[in-house]
């Protein structure tokens, strides 16, 4: 786990390596015809399943029932009916879409802020057992979520929070903290001590240094983590189905889709459109914030 979390130095390397080597060496075509062919085969294998289901989601229901998506090319007909039905019909995915948004936004803001405070303290404040506590937080990254779920649910039930969004917000916050603190701490440690010393001489306290110097300087790291956390929460199924069982009021898209896939496994006009309703947000994030996205995913690849 620790290994996959790129240090600031490695991240720097990941970011700068590409342009440097490309300008250094002339770009070449794929080495040989066979190599191009092999790359093409992999690329096609990786896109075809998604493409097939995407095309299916726009085909009329009756066509989907009777033939595969490749028949579309001989009988091209497109419709948005499936999306209309899956969003506003009996499956009412629009409700779950809203739920996903409601769950995700606080589940990103809260852990990121708490982790910023804690990592600043671990990086630049002095207090007893600081290093021991940091190692402990760092080690918590390896704990699988499963180990905490059953007792955690018990706590929520006892606190009468069950059936509200709170268990989801709190759980996602807790599960995000070890990675977030570790990551942000590494970046905050890299900020030159002279900068802080200068601010101190000018009479700045910890709060001023934190808000005026530290947070602006590590914003890229915060953004990368926030994007990772956003996708993690949006795509999560485990926390969703344990903390929001069967409640239409609070269940996110993933939980509803998994349920549909089990109970109405062959209603492909609904499943295909439903899948893409849940996929569209991450893909938009991917396209527009690709760089942060890749960094965030690499950093968080062992979470959970």
């Amino acid at each position: 786990m620790t290994a996959a979390v790129p240090t600031p130095a490695l991240q720097e390397e990941l970011a700068t390596v590409e342009p440097a080597t490309i300008t250094g060496r002339a770009r070449k075509r794929l080495t040989s015809r066979w190599a191009s062919l092999a790359a093409l085969v992999i690329a096609v294998l990786w896109t075809l399943p998604t493409f097939g289901l995407l095309l299916t989601s726009f085909r009329p229901e009756n066509d989907i029932r009777t033939s595969g998506w490749w028949n579309w090319f001989s009988d091209p007909q497109l419709t948005l009916d499936n999306y209309d039905e899956v969003l506003y019909g009996g499956t009412s995915l629009s409700t779950y879409f809203i739920n996903s948004i409601i769950i995700t936004i606080p589940s990103v803001i809260i852990p990121v802020s708490i982790a910023c405070l804690a990592s600043y303290a671990f990086a630049w404040m002095r207090f007893p057992f600081r290093d021991t506590l940091f190692v402990a937080v760092f080690a918590l990254q390896i704990v699988p979520l499963q180990v905490a779920l059953i007792p955690l649910l018990r706590i929520y039930v006892d606190a009468d929070l069950n059936g509200t969004f709170w268990p989801l917000w709190i759980s996602h916050t807790i599960f995000a903290l070890p990675l977030a603190i570790f990551l942000l701490h590494n970046f905050m440690r890299e900020v030159p001590a002279e900068l802080m010393e200068a601010a101190r001489v000018d009479g700045a306290g910890h709060v001023t240094i934190f808000t005026r110097i530290m947070v602006p300087l590590v914003t890229p790291a915060i953004a990368a983590f926030a994007i990772f956390q956003f996708l993690w929460v949006w795509n999560d199924l485990l926390v969703a189905i344990t903390m929001a069982t069967g409640a239409q009021d609070i269940q996110p898209l993933t939980a509803r889709l998994a349920e549909l896939s089990g109970s109405r496994g062959s209603t492909w006009h609904l499943l295909s459109a439903g899948a893409f309703v849940s996929i569209v947000i991450p893909v938009i994030v991917f396209v527009f914030l690709q760089r942060y996205f890749v960094r965030g995913l690499l950093a968080g690849s062992v979470k959970g």
Binding site: P49, T50, G52, L53, T56, L231, W234, N235, D236, L237, T254, L257, A258, S261, G265, W268, L271, S272, G274, A275, F276, S278, I279, P282, V283, V285, F286, F293
Partner: peptide
């Protein structure tokens, strides 16, 4: 970028 639930549905159709 896709949720594992989404990926599973994509492949179930395959």
């Amino acid at each position: 970028a896709i949720s594992l639930v989404g990926a599973s549905i994509i492949w179930r159709y395959v």
